[in-house]
């Protein structure tokens, strides 16, 4: 089997690996780099449990090949908290019980964090529409939406304070 050499930045660290051409980014993350926080919940790119950031955009890491991420800057759930301090979205999910079994959570958090970069003040409808690509079976989404609303508020306040 031919292999490809890929080099990328993951959570701020330069990494490289030899992978089969068919290897998905999520496989590279989970199997080669042992970053098992990114989950696989389906095989049709529907569930969003594998959502990570690639060059700043939320991407389902089962939809792209590892080879396509060559040279990219990837952030996973393991790299979201900074210096032990939870990201505002993580903190809001904890505070507002936005998770139960935790399996969809990394994808939900990564997707929500990207939303709040692109739209710092989303309406409930905008949050629900954005998260349409992330399936949760436990929460009924109620507390996830609440958490994103509160995280948005926190991030806006932080941004204002910094101005």
């Amino acid at each position: 089997m031919t292999t490809l050499s890929v080099s990328l930045t993951v959570n701020g660290k330069k990494v490289s690996a030899d992978v089969e051409p068919r290897t998905l980014l999520v496989q590279l993350l989970r199997e080669n780099l042992h970053l098992t926080g990114t989950h696989v919940g389906c095989d049709t790119s529907q569930c969003g449990a594998c959502t990570v950031h690639v060059n700043g955009d939320s991407v389902k890491s089962c939809t792209i090949l590892a080879a396509q991420a060559d040279g990219a800057d990837v952030r996973t759930i393991e790299g979201l908290a900074q210096a032990g301090v939870l990201h505002a979205v993580q903190e809001a999910f904890r505070e507002h019980h936005g998770l139960q079994c935790g399996f969809c959570t990394p994808g939900m958090v990564m997707s929500s964090a990207d939303l709040l970069v692109k739209n710092p003040n989303p309406s409930e409808h905008e949050i629900r529409t954005w998260l349409e690509g992330n399936i949760c079976r436990c929460t009924g989404y109620h507390n996830i939406v609440k958490a994103v609303q509160h995280a948005a508020q926190t991030l806006r306040q932080t941004a204002q304070a910094a101005e």
Partner: peptide, 13 residues
């Protein structure tokens, strides 16, 4: 608040 959340929120489940 749930004690299990931190590991799930940081990818340490």
């Amino acid at each position: 608040k749930r004690r299990e959340d931190k590991r799930f929120l940081t990818g340490k489940g």
